[in-house]
C-alpha cells in the first residue's frame, strides 16, 4: 500500500467506526463528543483531497456551530438521563428487512454510478488562483441564482423563529 492509500484507509475506518459509536451511545452528550471527533476526521479527509478551505469550513461550521447547537438543545431540554428505550430494532424480521433494504440501496446506487466529466476547475488552476478565490468566483458568478435561493430558504426559518419568540414574549398565543 502506498502512503495515500494508508491515509485513506485510516479515515475510512475511523469515520465509519466513529459514526457507529455516535448512534450506539446511550448518553447523548457522549454521542455528541464522538460526532465531534467524526467531524474532525471528515475535515481531515477534505485536507487529504487538497481542499484545505473546505476542511477548515467543515470544522468551523459543523463542529463549531451546528454541533454546539445540538449540545445546547440537549443541555437546555435537560436530557441528563440516558435513554431508556432500546436502541435496536426488536425481532429478527425487522432486522432482516432493514438489512435487505440497505443492501438494495447500495446495489442500486453502485450500479447507477456514473463518473462525471472533469470540470474546468482543475487542480493546477485551483493551486494557481487560490482556493478561496476560485470558490468565490464560481459561487458569485456561475451559481449566483442557486446561492440566492439558498439564502432565501435559510432566511425563512429565521423569520419563523423570531415570530415564535415574539409570541412567547407577549404572553399571548
Amino acid at each position: 500500500m502506498t502512503l495515500p492509500q494508508i491515509f485513506f484507509a485510516y479515515f475510512f475506518v475511523m469515520i465509519l467506526g466513529l459514526a457507529v459509536m455516535v448512534v450506539t451511545r446511550r448518553n447523548l452528550v457522549h454521542a455528541v463528543l464522538w460526532m465531534l471527533l467524526m467531524f474532525v476526521h471528515i475535515g481531515g479527509l477534505y485536507l487529504f483531497l487538497n481542499a484545505e478551505f473546505f476542511a477548515i469550513i467543515q470544522i468551523i461550521v459543523y463542529a463549531g456551530a451546528i454541533l454546539v447547537m445540538f449540545l445546547f438543545v440537549l443541555l437546555l431540554l435537560n436530557v441528563k438521563q440516558s435513554l431508556t428505550a432500546s436502541l435496536f430494532i426488536r425481532g429478527w424480521q425487522g432486522r432482516a428487512m432493514a438489512v435487505v433494504f440497505l443492501l438494495l440501496v447500495f446495489v442500486i446506487s453502485i450500479k447507477n454510478l456514473v463518473i462525471g466529466p472533469r470540470g474546468e476547475y482543475s487542480i493546477q488552476r485551483i493551486e494557481q488562483q487560490g482556493h478561496i478565490k476560485v470558490i468565490g468566483e464560481a459561487m458569485f458568478n456561475d451559481y449566483i441564482l442557486p446561492f440566492m435561493i439558498i439564502g432565501l430558504i435559510l432566511f425563512v426559518p429565521m423569520i419563523a423563529a423570531a415570530v415564535l419568540a415574539m409570541r412567547r414574549h407577549d404572553g399571548s398565543s
Binding site: L33, L36, V40, I56, I57, I59, I60, G64, V68, L71
Partner: peptide
C-alpha cells in the same frame, strides 16, 4: 481561518 476553527473547538 485555522485559528478561528481552533477557537470554535475549544468552546466544547
Amino acid at each position: 481561518l485555522f485559528i478561528l476553527a481552533c477557537a470554535s473547538l475549544s468552546v466544547y
